[in-house]
């Protein structure tokens, strides 16, 4: 593990400022690669008014921090950050932001992918749909493909 800075982990109700998040990861010139992922709320073909994200306060932060630390243990990272929103999120807005910086790109790509896959299936958040017609839709169902995505990392490193 060679993380230059502590993992930056946050769970917040307000919008995620991508430029500010990226600027906070400046490593003083050591990094040759910065990989960022932003997960965005879709409009589902114009049907969706907003997504509402429920979370488990305390556990949401501690689980994300656990995966961020695990990413830093598995790959040589200079910086790692993960920010997740809760509450109401409109189409086009960022729900989740993950960033990893490393000397060479391989570590940053893999670590960001790993961190995102774990956040999808292990961080305690639940989405429900609010529709344009004013009705509250159902809770979004979990996908087997997300579980399979996580399984893949069990065999890495």
């Amino acid at each position: 593990m060679s993380v230059g800075a502590e993992p930056l982990v946050r769970v917040q109700a307000g919008p995620i400022d991508l430029a500010a998040e990226i600027a906070a990861l400046e490593s003083g010139g050591a990094a040759g690669a910065l990989v960022t992922f932003t997960g965005t709320c879709r409009d589902e073909g114009g049907r969706l008014e907003a997504l509402e994200l429920e979370h488990y306060p305390g556990m949401a932060e501690s689980e994300i921090a656990r995966f961020a630390a695990e990413a830093a243990r598995r790959w040589d990272l200079l910086a790692v950050a993960a920010v997740h929103r809760y509450g109401r999120v409109a189409p086009g807005e960022t729900i989740v932001f993950v960033a990893c910086a490393s000397v060479h790109r391989g570590a940053a790509f893999e670590a960001a992918h790993f961190l995102m896959d774990y956040m999808k299936t292990r961080a305690p958040f639940w989405k429900r749909e609010h529709l344009k017609d004013g009705t509250v839709g159902g809770w979004v169902e979990s996908k087997d493909t997300d579980d399979h995505a996580v399984d893949r990392w069990r065999h890495v490193l």
Partner: peptide, 10 residues
């Protein structure tokens, strides 16, 4: 002890 459905964040 918390009980909940499979998670759907991210």
């Amino acid at each position: 002890i918390a009980l909940f459905p499979p998670m759907t964040g991210g």
